[in-house]
C-alpha cells in the first residue's frame, strides 16, 4: 500500500477508533484516579510478515491481558505491559510499592485483569455506539509470554482471509510520561468489513 494511501486509510479508521480510545482513556483515568491516560498511537493495515516488528518489544516477554470480543461479531483485545510497567500499574492500583511479577499474588493479577476488562468494556461500548452492533468483552485471561506469539494467535482469523492485518494500537501515559504499554485491538474479518463499510475505507 502506498504511504499516501496508507495515511488516508488511517484517517478514515480514526473516525471509528478515535471515540473508542477516548472512552477507554476516560475509564482508565477514573480507574487510576487520573494518573494514567491513553491516546491513539496508530492504526495500520500491515503485512503479516511485519507483525513481529510492528510492536515495540514485541519479540520480548510481557504481561498480556487478553479478551475475546463477543456479541454480534468477534475479534481480540490485548493489553500488553512490560515487566516494569506491570509492577508499576499494580502498585498504583493497589496503593502499595511495586513488586516484580514473580512475587505477585492473586490480588495483583486480579487488578491487572480488571484493568484489561475496564479498558475493553469502555472501548467496545464506544464501538457499539458507533456501529449499532452488540459488542462486549469475554472474561479476561492473563498471560506472560512473547508478545508476538500471542499476537499471532490473535490475528489468526484475519490471517485466514488476508495477508494484511488491521491493528489499532494505543499508547499510555502515566503521570505525563509515556510508558511501554500497548492496547491492541484486532477486529475479526467480519467486524473489519462492517467497520470498513461504515466509513468507506477501501480494501487493501
Amino acid at each position: 500500500m502506498e504511504s499516501n494511501q496508507q495515511a488516508a486509510v488511517c484517517i478514515e479508521w480514526e473516525q471509528v477508533f478515535g471515540p473508542a480510545i477516548e472512552a477507554a482513556s476516560r475509564a482508565m483515568s477514573t480507574w487510576t484516579q487520573g494518573r494514567v491516560t491513553l491516546s491513539l498511537d496508530e492504526i495500520r493495515e500491515l503485512p503479516l510478515v511485519e507483525l513481529g516488528e510492528a510492536i515495540q518489544g514485541g519479540q520480548e516477554i510481557a504481561t498480556v491481558v487478553a479478551l475475546d470480543v463477543r456479541g454480534d461479531v468477534g475479534g481480540q483485545f490485548l493489553l500488553t505491559v512490560d515487566d516494569d510497567g506491570a509492577a508499576k500499574l499494580a502498585g498504583l492500583l493497589l496503593n502499595r510499592a511495586p513488586r516484580p511479577f514473580a512475587e505477585w499474588d492473586e490480588i495483583e493479577r486480579s487488578a491487572l485483569m480488571e484493568t484489561g476488562n475496564i479498558l475493553g468494556s469502555a472501548y467496545l461500548s464506544a464501538l457499539t455506539n458507533i456501529t449499532g452492533l452488540s459488542l462486549f468483552p469475554s472474561p479476561p485471561q492473563m498471560l506472560r509470554d512473547y508478545v508476538v506469539g500471542i499476537l499471532e494467535q490473535a490475528v489468526m482469523a484475519q490471517a485466514i482471509e488476508s495477508d494484511y492485518v488491521l491493528l489499532a494500537r494505543t499508547c499510555f501515559r502515566h503521570l505525563e510520561e509515556d510508558v511501554d504499554w500497548n492496547m491492541i485491538f484486532v477486529p475479526s474479518p467480519e467486524l473489519m468489513d462492517l467497520l470498513r463499510n461504515s466509513i468507506n475505507v477501501p480494501n487493501v
Partner: peptide, 10 residues
Amino acid sequence: GASMFETKGP
C-alpha cells in the same frame, strides 16, 4: 504450534 489462550477464533 502452541495454543496460547482460549478464544472463539481458530
